[in-house]
Simulated assay, not measured.
Amino acid sequence: MFNFGFLWLALSIGSEITGTSMIKKTHGFSKPGPSLLVIGAYALCYFALTRAMSTIPVGVAYSLWCGFGIVGVTVCSMILYRQKPDLPAIIAMLLIISGGIVMNMFSGT
């Protein structure tokens, strides 16, 4: 049976990436449009995360949320702000992704 918690988790991760990536565009929350987007994205993020945690163990959900959020924000910062991670950062993100895959495939929790 399909666990819809992972859809909630994906929505949570996506909205967290959106909110975090847009913080720089708020200019200290002085621009209303980007500021409302950040606030709305974080509200959706935490709502979806609570829904995900109703069916996914807290440790699994939170670690995937953190890990894929880090990678997603880094990718968005490369696109939006032309920031380039160095080699150690790229290696660390590959380890994060690998950890998420291993956790999903082999964890019994």
Rank of each mutant, 00 (worst) to 15 (best):
M103W: 08
I56W: 10
I70N: 04
L44F: 15
K31H: 01
V38G: 02
L7W: 14
K31E: 00
V75M: 07
M103S: 07
L64D: 05
V71A: 11
L7C: 05
G59W: 03
T55E: 12
L37C: 03
L95S: 11
L9C: 12
T55G: 05
C66T: 12
V60Y: 03
M103T: 15
I13S: 00
A43Y: 14
S54Q: 14
T18L: 14
T18F: 13
P34Q: 00
F6E: 04
E16C: 13
S30A: 06
G100M: 06
G59V: 09
E16H: 14
S107P: 06
S12P: 06
G67I: 05
T18H: 02
F4Y: 15
S107T: 12
C45G: 05
S107Y: 14
G108A: 12
P57K: 07
L11V: 14
G14E: 00
G72T: 08
K84H: 13
G28I: 11
G108I: 14
A92L: 08
V73L: 04
V73I: 13
A10Y: 12
Y62S: 09
S15C: 13
A61G: 07
I70C: 01
G108Q: 13
V58Q: 11
K84F: 09
W65F: 15
A41D: 03
L11T: 13
W65Q: 01
M53A: 11
S77P: 02
C45D: 07
L44N: 04
L37P: 00
I101L: 09
A10F: 15
G59P: 01
V58D: 08
P88D: 12
N3T: 14
L94C: 08
M78G: 08
M103A: 10
P57T: 13
I70D: 02
P85Y: 11
A89R: 11
L36T: 11
I96P: 07
L44G: 11
G19M: 04
N3W: 14
T20F: 04
L94H: 02
G5E: 07
W8S: 10
I70K: 06
